[in-house]
Amino acid sequence: MIPAAFDYVAPTSLAEAVSALSEAGEDAKILAGGQSLIPVLRLRLAFPSTLVDLGRVDELRGVREDGDSLVIGAMTRHSEVMDDPLVRQYAGLLAEATATVADPAVRHRGTFGGALAHADPAGDLAAVALALDAELVAEGPGGRRTIAARDFFVNYLETALSPDEILAAVRVPKLEGFWGVRYEKFHRVAQAWAIVGVAAAVRMDGDTPGGSIAEARIGLTNMGATPVRASSVEGALVGAADRAAVQEASSSVAEGTSPPSDLGGQADYRQHLARVLTARAVTAAAGLGG
């Protein structure tokens, strides 16, 4: 299939991009990596009047340190994120989850910012951003603002970005000390979207492997219209020092979630998977065996 016709602009700076987006009006769409958007256009499920391509805005690409955070340009490609030494050192959970996104060719084009701004709750990275307390930096005609990840994902495919704003960068607080991480993705075939995913990062007491859990971060993929942060489970996990305790703490992870019932699975099955996968992710991240 073939997209319907649209106008196209390819600004080379963020400022240009913001004004191009404003000028293009409300039916414009931002083209990041295009790996979700272009198939949607080909199937004629969307008819944007203009595409504002961020692919030539170099300032939106790359990973840098900024004090206690990493700043990841929104147009940094998945393949760059997952291999980036800073990401691997300070945000290993993001590197691990990014490596499970789609396939290598898609990861060469798809971008971190594009995936977050698309806000598909089945996407792997939103739950990670949530678990890592990322902040999303938006640039619009009114200037720059920072949105906490917990406020960013508003609804299914809907974010706190206003139509004239562009996601410019993602600030990911560094995980300092000994953090174990694990992204458990459950899907039926390698290419498929997650039926459920669990992103877990845990800090161990005394900053060494073994021992008990001092702090935990849990994000859930595809367990509702938005990614879910499992805060109560995070609290319950503190002090857990063996698999049984992790399992016990994980058992409430699905409480309050409203996962979809679709071809991938019914809601109750997803809730069950969330419990199983949370225990597994945390156990693995904490190095508590098996």
Binding site: L43, R188, V189, A190, Q191, A192, W193, L263
Partner: peptide, 16 residues
């Protein structure tokens, strides 16, 4: 047909 594309109709790839 709710499995109208390769997104939902799961043809196995090499790892599967």
């Amino acid at each position: 047909l709710t499995t109208g594309s390769l997104v939902d109709y799961l043809v196995p790839a090499a790892p599967d």
